[in-house]
């Protein structure tokens, strides 16, 4: 009994150290964002700001295009998520519930490209997009992100767990395949849709490279791209930069807080992302 308690204390100590190491950078981000700029780097370190400089948050909006950036990012993330969920769940139904020739080969092509890094074909992709005059439009990022193989894969994994008898029964009742998708399979796959939505939203929100290559005009910038430019212009405005960083992370933190379960389920059911 006594040994058990000692073990427990040790375990908690280990957990607390691990959590501190993980969360320290976030604490640093938030506390620096509320400091006066001269107090960010001091020796010894100030863990809590002397006075809370809430005006840093007003200043970042005033000094940068933060409003535009946030609007663009939100537009992109929402549109991409909607399209990915719609086309992904639709295609996954074809791959998992309709039997036809060539289906498996086609699916293999999908899966194979998940392993191919985007970095290896970003050049020809950019050439194609430029030929279509799509670079420097928000649409380019939507096109880039919305038709990924990942969504098809995640939804198919989930559909496979829905018993075939369900669709069979519906077919006997005279429901078309589209009817089965819409009225039976889709309502049953709410958890998978939640996972896919959250993962897609977050990865579009955080994407830096896509916007870096495609969005050159300042009024098209996303929050990641904007923040990065702000950093290179005002690289000594530590407190302001940290306020901007908090703003770029906050929406994700909120989404994560409410949907942790779905993140975890989405990741463990596919094990693929990133």
């Amino acid at each position: 009994m006594k040994r058990n308690t000692a073990g427990r204390v040790l375990l908690y100590a280990g957990l607390i150290i691990a959590a501190a190491a993980l969360l320290l950078p976030f604490y640093w981000m938030v506390s620096s964002s509320l400091k006066a700029n001269n107090d960010v780097f001091t020796i010894p370190l100030k863990w809590v700001p002397d006075t809370f400089m809430w005006r840093n948050y007003g200043d970042i909006f005033a000094k940068s295009g933060m409003t535009t950036w946030l609007t663009n990012t939100l537009t992109l993330s929402v549109t991409v998520t909607l399209l990915q969920v719609l086309t992904g769940s639709f295609a996954a139904y074809g791959f998992s519930k309709v039997r036809f020739r060539g289906r498996n080969v086609l699916f293999l092509a999908y899966i194979a490209t998940i392993a191919v890094p985007w970095q290896s074909y970003m050049i020809p992709q950019f050439i194609l997009m430029s030929k279509l005059h799509l670079s420097n439009t928000l649409f380019s990022i939507i096109a880039l992100q919305a038709f990924g193989a990942f969504g098809v894969f995640l939804m198919k994994q989930f559909y496979e767990t829905i018993p075939e008898e369900l669709s069979e029964a519906a077919r006997l009742d005279g429901l078309s395949e589209y009817g089965i998708y819409w009225r039976i399979i889709l309502p049953l796959s709410k958890p998978a849709i939640a996972s896919l939505s959250l993962l897609t939203f977050v990865s579009t929100w955080n994407d830096y490279l896509g916007p870096l290559i495609y969005l050159r005009k300042p009024d098209l910038w996303t929050v990641q791209l904007g923040l990065r430019t702000f950093i290179s212009q005002y690289n000594a405005e530590y407190a302001l930069i940290m306020a901007g960083s908090v703003l770029s992370v906050l929406p994700i933190a909120i989404v994560f807080l409410f949907g942790q379960r779905y993140f975890v389920e989405g990741i463990t059911s596919t094990g693929l992302k990133g």
């Binding site: 691990a18 959590a19 993980l22 969360l23 950078p25 976030f26 981000m29 977050v202 929100w205 955080n206 830096y208 929050v223 990641q224 923040l227 990065r228 950093i231 901007g244 960083s245 908090v246 770029s248 992370v249 994700i252 933190a253 994560f256 942790q260 993140f263 975890v264 990133g274």
Partner: peptide, 11 residues
């Protein structure tokens, strides 16, 4: 432990 994975690389 999972949170860093979904936060912005820029920040």
């Amino acid at each position: 432990a999972f949170f860093p994975y979904i936060t912005s690389m820029v920040a």
